[in-house]
Lab assay of single mutants.
Amino acid sequence: MTEYKLVVVGAGGVGKSALTIQLIQNHFVDEYDPTIEDSYRKQVVIDGETCLLDILDTAGQEEYSAMRDQYMRTGEGFLCVFAINNTKSFEDIHHYREQIKRVKDSEDVPMVLVGNKCDLPSRTVDTKQAQDLARSYGIPFIETSAKTRQGVDDAFYTLVREIRKHKEKMSKDGKKKKKKSKTKCVIM
């Protein structure tokens, strides 16, 4: 069974824990209790493949930012979460993405942009803004509501699919490099 290491990042209060708990335990946590770091595991079937999701729910508070490099190193894919009623959390996505790329030393890291709290009427981040940002990053965008469960499975499952595509691409690139290195030079 394939294991996928997913990391949920975003500013404090955007609903990272609520999304994760909704996926794992099928219930909505409405009281806000700032996370330092929590880890969850769940076995699911995605596109006919049974897999184990190892999900790291991270601290959004700035005082825990020193811990970010460590979990970013171990993560295979990242859910970059903002709240649709919090423009600052949307603007912060850029910083999370840049930090992930720096730590992973790669421009090509599996990510999904997630606009959470889409059940709320007080939207300050337009869907088109988020779609445009995701398009500019070359990553999928999904709106979710941890409260109603809308888009929750889709967000995590899409990230797994992005990781699969990335692994497939990397193995193809690896095979191309191996083929090239088999060419021999004969000096007579």
Rank of each mutant, 00 (worst) to 15 (best):
R102T: 10
F82N: 06
C80W: 02
D132C: 05
G77Y: 03
Q99T: 04
T124L: 08
Q99K: 02
R161S: 14
I55P: 00
T124S: 10
G138E: 12
K179E: 12
L113W: 14
L52P: 15
I46N: 13
G115D: 07
E63L: 03
G10P: 01
T148G: 12
R97I: 15
D57Q: 00
E168H: 12
F90G: 10
K117T: 15
G174C: 03
D119Y: 13
Y71P: 01
E62L: 03
C118R: 08
Q131R: 10
E3W: 05
Y40A: 00
D57V: 00
D173P: 06
R41A: 11
L56T: 10
K165A: 12
V44A: 12
D33A: 01
G48H: 08
D33Q: 00
E98L: 02
K167E: 09
A155G: 12
G13M: 09
K42T: 10
Y96L: 15
Q131F: 11
L56S: 01
L159A: 04
F78D: 05
Q70K: 03
D108N: 07
G48F: 05
L159H: 01
Y137P: 12
D126N: 09
A155L: 08
I55C: 07
Q61N: 11
H166P: 05
S17W: 02
E91S: 14
D57G: 00
Y4R: 13
D69W: 04
T20R: 00
R135Q: 07
L52K: 14
A134Q: 09
M67F: 02
G12T: 09
A83K: 08
Q25V: 13
V9P: 02
D38M: 00
S89T: 12
E37R: 00
D69T: 04
Y137E: 10
R149N: 07
Y40C: 00
R149A: 10
V14Q: 13
G75C: 04
V186S: 12
K117H: 14
L52Q: 14
F90Y: 11
V8T: 09
P34V: 02
I21D: 08
L52V: 12
A59H: 00
F28C: 03
Y157E: 10
R73P: 04
D119F: 12
R123V: 10
S145I: 13
S17M: 00
I36G: 01
L133F: 08
V125E: 13
K184V: 14
V81L: 09
G174P: 06
A130P: 08
K178G: 10
Y32D: 01
Y157L: 12
K104M: 04
G12F: 07
N26V: 04
G10A: 11
R97Y: 14
A59P: 00
V8M: 05
G10Q: 02
V186W: 13
C51M: 12
C51L: 13
L19A: 14
I46M: 14
E168Y: 06
M188S: 12
Q25R: 04
I55H: 04
L79G: 01
E107H: 07
V112G: 01
P121T: 11
K180E: 05
G151V: 13
K169H: 06
C118S: 09
E3C: 05
I139N: 04
D119L: 13
G10Y: 02
Q22P: 01
K177W: 06
D108T: 05
S136G: 07
K16Y: 02
F90C: 11
M67P: 02
Q43Y: 08
Q70M: 09
N85S: 06
T87E: 12
L159Y: 12
V186P: 10
T158D: 04
D47K: 14
K178R: 09
I24Y: 04
R161I: 02
L79V: 06
V7W: 11
M72D: 00
E107L: 11
T124R: 07
E168G: 11
G75A: 11
E107P: 12
R149G: 10
M111E: 01
G13S: 13
S39M: 08
M111L: 08
D33T: 00
R73C: 05
D119R: 12
V44T: 12
E37L: 00
Q61F: 02
V103T: 14
R68C: 02
I46H: 13
R161H: 09
A66W: 04
V125Q: 11
Q22F: 06
D38N: 02
T183D: 15
G15I: 02
Q61L: 05
L19W: 04
D108C: 09
K117C: 10
V45A: 13
C185G: 14
V160N: 08
P121C: 07
V109P: 04
P34G: 02
V160C: 14
D154W: 06
R97D: 10
I21F: 11
L56D: 01
P121A: 11
K104P: 03
Y137M: 10
D154H: 05
K128Y: 06
V103K: 03
D57N: 00
E62Y: 03
K16H: 03
I100L: 14
R41C: 10
L23W: 12
L133G: 06
Y157D: 08
V109I: 11
T20A: 05
Q61W: 01
Q25Y: 02
E63Y: 06
N86S: 09
F90L: 14
F141S: 07
I100W: 03
E76S: 04
Y137V: 13
I21Q: 14
K184S: 10
R73V: 05
E162P: 04
E49C: 06
K184T: 05
G60V: 00
V8H: 06
T144H: 09
T74L: 07
I36D: 03
R73Q: 07
F90E: 05
Y40P: 00
Q129P: 11
D153I: 07
T127P: 05
M170S: 12
D126A: 06
K42C: 08
Y137K: 09
N26G: 12
G15M: 02
V29R: 04
D105L: 12
L120D: 15
D105M: 15
K180I: 06
P121M: 07
V8F: 03
D108Y: 07
D126E: 07
E63T: 05
I163V: 05
D57I: 00
D54E: 08
R123L: 10
L53E: 08
I55G: 01
D54L: 02
D132S: 05
E98C: 05
Q43C: 08
E162A: 07
R164L: 12
D154T: 07
T58A: 03
K5C: 05
H166S: 10
T158E: 12
S106E: 08
D33R: 00
M170N: 15
E107M: 14
H95E: 06
E3G: 05
S122R: 06
Y71T: 01
I21S: 15
C185N: 05
E91C: 04
E49R: 08
K88T: 15
E62A: 04
V152W: 15
Q129I: 12
Y40N: 00
Q70G: 04
Q22T: 09
T50K: 12
A66Y: 00
Q43T: 12
V160F: 10
A130D: 12
D173R: 12
V7A: 09
E98H: 04
G15C: 01
L159D: 01
K169W: 03
A66F: 07
K165W: 10
I55D: 00
S145W: 04
G60K: 00
I163N: 05
L79N: 02
Y64E: 00
R68Y: 01
V114N: 02
D154E: 11
V8W: 01
K167L: 09
M188A: 14
T35A: 00
L120R: 13
D38K: 00
M111V: 04
A83Q: 13
R149D: 13
G48K: 08
Q25H: 05
K16N: 04
D54G: 03
A18L: 00
E3H: 07
F28I: 03
S122L: 08
Q131Y: 04
E91G: 08
T144R: 03
Y157H: 10
R123F: 08
M170T: 05
A130T: 10
P121D: 14
E107A: 11
L53F: 11
A130W: 14
S65V: 05
V152S: 12
K169N: 09
T50V: 14
K175N: 08
S145G: 15
L19I: 11
S171W: 04
E37W: 00
E91P: 03
S136L: 12
Q43H: 09
D30L: 12
S65C: 04
K172R: 07
F82T: 15
T183P: 15
V29H: 07
L56Y: 00
E98R: 12
R97G: 10
D153V: 07
D33C: 01
L113I: 07
